[in-house]
C-alpha cells in the first residue's frame, strides 16, 4: 500500500504506539512516513494520517471548506 502524500509543515512529530499495536501520529513528516511505511500494518492503518484534501493558496494548503454537519 502506498503511504499518503505529506507536506512537511510542522517541525515536530509525535508518535504514540499503543500496546495493541495501533500507532497515533501528530505532525506527520516525509521521513516519518518512510519509516512507518516499512512497518507491517492493516490496510486501514493510514486513517489517522491522511493529509487534508485541499487546494493551494499563498498561505499554504487550505483544506476544502466543508460546512459542519
Amino acid at each position: 500500500m502506498k503511504p499518503p502524500k505529506t507536506r512537511d509543515e510542522g517541525p515536530v512529530s509525535e508518535i504514540t504506539i499503543l500496546p495493541d499495536g495501533r500507532v497515533y501520529v501528530f505532525g506527520l513528516t516525509r521521513p516519518l512516513v518512510e519509516v512507518l511505511a516499512a512497518l507491517p500494518r492493516q490496510e486501514s492503518g493510514w486513517r489517522e494520517m491522511e493529509p487534508p484534501a485541499g487546494r493551494e493558496h499563498p498561505g499554504g494548503v487550505v483544506p476544502r471548506a466543508e460546512p459542519p454537519p
Binding site: 505532525g27 489517522e48 487534508p52 483544506p63 471548506a65 460546512p67 459542519p68 454537519p69
Partner: peptide
C-alpha cells in the same frame, strides 16, 4: 470550521463532526 483544518492544524480526525 472543517475537518481538513482540524486535521492539519489541530491534529485530530472528524473534528467538526465531533464538535
Amino acid at each position: 470550521g472543517n475537518n481538513g483544518c482540524g486535521r492539519r492544524i489541530g491534529g485530530v480526525e472528524r473534528y467538526t463532526d465531533i464538535l
